[in-house]
Computed example of a mutant assay.
Amino acid sequence: MNQGTVYTGRPPRLHPRHVRDRQFATVGFGRRGLDPQQVRQFLHRVAWELASLHQDVARLGDENVRIKRALRDWQSAQAQRRMS
C-alpha cells in the first residue's frame, strides 16, 4: 500500500484517459507479441465506451435528483391539501 493513501477495498475508478494513455512494453525481435495498432484501436474503443458510461451515470444522477425533488414537492403539496 502506498504511503498517504487510504485503502478502500477496491481499485481506483477507471477513467477513459487511463485506458487511452496506457502503454505496453514492446516485445523483442523474434518473439511473439500483440499488434500495437490493434491494441491502440481497442484501447480507444474501450475509452470511448467508458466516457459514454460516465456521461450516462452523470445524466442519471441529475435525473434522480430532479425526480426526488419533484416527489418532495408533490408530497408537500399533498400534506398541505390534507391540512386545508
Results as ranks from 00 to 15, higher is better:
1 M>H: 13
1 M>I: 14
1 M>N: 09
3 Q>W: 13
3 Q>T: 13
5 T>I: 11
5 T>D: 15
5 T>S: 15
6 V>A: 15
6 V>L: 15
9 G>S: 01
9 G>M: 04
11 P>G: 10
11 P>S: 12
13 R>H: 07
13 R>Y: 06
14 L>K: 00
14 L>E: 03
15 H>F: 14
16 P>W: 09
16 P>D: 07
17 R>F: 10
20 R>G: 02
21 D>Y: 05
21 D>I: 00
22 R>V: 00
23 Q>C: 01
23 Q>V: 08
23 Q>K: 05
25 A>W: 02
26 T>S: 15
26 T>G: 10
26 T>R: 13
29 F>G: 05
30 G>T: 01
31 R>E: 06
32 R>V: 05
32 R>A: 07
32 R>G: 07
33 G>Q: 00
34 L>S: 12
35 D>N: 14
36 P>Q: 01
37 Q>L: 09
37 Q>E: 09
39 V>R: 04
39 V>E: 02
40 R>D: 03
40 R>I: 01
41 Q>I: 02
42 F>P: 03
43 L>T: 04
44 H>R: 08
45 R>G: 08
46 V>L: 13
46 V>H: 01
48 W>C: 05
48 W>P: 01
49 E>C: 08
49 E>K: 01
50 L>C: 04
50 L>H: 05
50 L>Y: 05
51 A>H: 05
51 A>V: 00
54 H>Q: 14
54 H>G: 03
56 D>I: 07
57 V>G: 04
57 V>Q: 11
58 A>N: 02
60 L>N: 10
60 L>K: 14
60 L>P: 04
60 L>C: 07
61 G>N: 07
61 G>I: 00
63 E>M: 07
64 N>Y: 06
65 V>R: 06
65 V>I: 09
66 R>C: 00
66 R>T: 06
67 I>K: 09
67 I>G: 03
69 R>G: 04
69 R>A: 13
70 A>N: 06
70 A>G: 05
71 L>W: 12
71 L>I: 14
72 R>K: 10
72 R>F: 14
72 R>H: 11
73 D>E: 14
73 D>S: 11
73 D>N: 08
75 Q>V: 12
75 Q>I: 12
75 Q>T: 09
77 A>Y: 02
77 A>L: 05
78 Q>W: 04
78 Q>Y: 06
79 A>L: 08
80 Q>R: 13
80 Q>T: 10
82 R>M: 09
82 R>Q: 14
82 R>H: 12
82 R>T: 13
82 R>N: 14
83 M>S: 15
